[in-house]
Design a protein around this nucleic acid. Structure first.
Lengths: 201, 201
DNA sequence: TGCTTAATTGACCAAACGATCAATAAGACG
DNA sequence: CGTCTTATTGATCGTTTGGTCAATTAAGCA
């Protein structure tokens, strides 16, 4: 049944364990990360997971940073060069359409566990700043291009991050339809960034 | 050192334990609630805490419901009868001024732990609905009074709850000044509810 | 092929958790 | 004052956690 012991290079093993931990976190949240659960998924022993990690706190913080970092890179690749209002809207909608439930669970756990783990708290602060900077850049580019009219893109970006985080966290426990929620958000987002199509009064 | 054993009525002891658990949760979050930590604060034994609780999951859910319920009642008492724009603004500012950090920690823990505790998940859903209903009622009353111009108070309330939750959660890990963040929120909130003083474009 | 390095294991440990149960004793009541 | 109910305790169990360490063994190398 069990495959014979395999001896990998430290780099390979490190990567394999990191992959297992990332997959596990996306399925069960950061709260589901233990030496033994990661080891079982990677097909190794808990002791080996402990061997390659400075501590579980650092392991969890690294997993969080990697998951969020991958998402940021993906969004940068897809929307980084665009300056259209439609592209920004598509981005915001994609952040709210419910397809990010796994990542939202990771964020929620990070906020909770981060209070008792300094490495994780640091990673959360960094990730929040990166998110804000990314959105601020996207908004600012559109202000420069005359698409948006926003007095302070940095502030708008903070609001948007908070809005997205809060609504996504709600969607974890509420029954509300995610698609509907996203649609209803558009007018508010348009007003937030000064999109000319925002409902005027 | 230790006071002699004291024998209370079940109701008194129940209330004392519940109080100890609530105070502890406000200091360390729901994650800090254990039979032993609650027992130590109440000056009793862990076995007694277990005796009066159906299970720790239910205990935690009850503590959450009580903390959030008290906050809701307080806000209802202070803002329930008011229909002024200033009153609503004062409420929103008070929700963002950083004085709610303890309650925010409880909420964040509830979102995380609620995924593994059905009683807690139920309590979170109920509390979310109550919050939304409260804000929707406040907004709607102002729409009726002609103070706000909002096509769908219920939707605006959901957005506001998400916004407040998200920004408060951020404040747990970010260094941003809470007061500044609240001030910068006002224009957005005004636009959200259709307050005539919202920045027009 | 045999040796040597070090990746990997299994067996531990102490701590903390929720939960259960017989034994104790506080306080009401006759 | 003695008795009885039951609130309360202390001891204990089984589980899970992060972490450590000597022993094992896979695989590169002479």
């Amino acid at each position: 049944m069990s495959t014979p012991r395999l001896r990998l290079s430290p780099e390979e093993r490190r990567a394999q364990i990191a992959d297992a931990a990332r997959d596990l976190a996306l399925e069960e949240g950061l709260i589901g990360l233990t030496q033994r659960s990661i080891a079982a998924r990677a097909g190794v022993t808990g002791a080996l997971v402990a061997h390659y990690a400075q501590s579980m706190d650092h392991l969890v913080a690294d997993v969080f940073a990697r998951i969020v970092g991958a998402e940021l890179a993906e969004i940068r690749a897809e929307h980084g060069a665009d300056t259209s209002a439609e592209g920004f809207e598509a981005l915001v909608l994609s952040l709210l359409d419910g397809g990010r439930a796994a990542v939202t669970r990771v964020w929620v756990d990070a906020f909770s566990l981060g209070r008792r783990s300094e490495p994780l708290a640091l990673a959360v602060r960094r990730a929040s700043d990166e998110w804000q900077a990314l959105l601020a850049g996207l908004i600012d580019a559109r202000v420069e291009a005359g698409v948006f009219d926003c007095p302070d893109p940095a502030v708008a970006a903070w609001h948007l991050v908070g809005l997205v985080d809060g609504l996504n966290a709600q969607s974890l426990v509420s029954w509300g339809d995610a698609g509907t929620r996203a649609d209803l958000m558009l007018p508010l987002v348009r007003r937030l960034v000064g999109d000319g199509r925002g409902t005027r009064r």
